[in-house]
């Protein structure tokens, strides 16, 4: 699988480490979060059959993180729209 690094271009998958689906943000006020909401933050991630927004890091290249959208059935990747990652 070729992964489009926003800075280095298409590179082999072995140059990257997977960061998983884009996580939900850290709860702004964790003291007020109940168990169910805390469980969602800790353990629940998107797992769609289809388009998935996910993080990769180009460990063997520029070592920068970025976000792409990949289809989990076809592995077709839509590159990040800007270089900011």
């Amino acid at each position: 699988m070729l992964i489009p690094c926003p800075w280095c271009g298409d590179r082999e998958e072995v140059e990257f480490r997977y960061g998983g689906p884009v996580p939900m943000g850290y709860p702004p006020d964790p003291q007020t979060v109940d168990d169910a909401a805390w469980a969602r933050y800790l353990y629940y991630r998107p797992n769609p059959k289809g388009a998935l927004e996910e993080r990769w890091v180009h460990t063997a290249g520029c070592r920068r993180w970025f976000t792409v959208t990949r289809d989990t059935v076809t592995n077709e990747i839509t590159p990040a729209t800007d270089g900011s990652g």
């Binding site: 699988m1 998958e13 072995v14 480490r17 997977y18 998983g20 689906p21 797992n47 059959k49 998935l52 996910e54 990949r70 989990t72 059935v73 076809t74 592995n75």
Partner: peptide, 13 residues
Amino acid sequence: DAYNSYAQRGSPH
């Protein structure tokens, strides 16, 4: 394999 997938195939490495 490292990444989420429903493709029933993985990477050769």
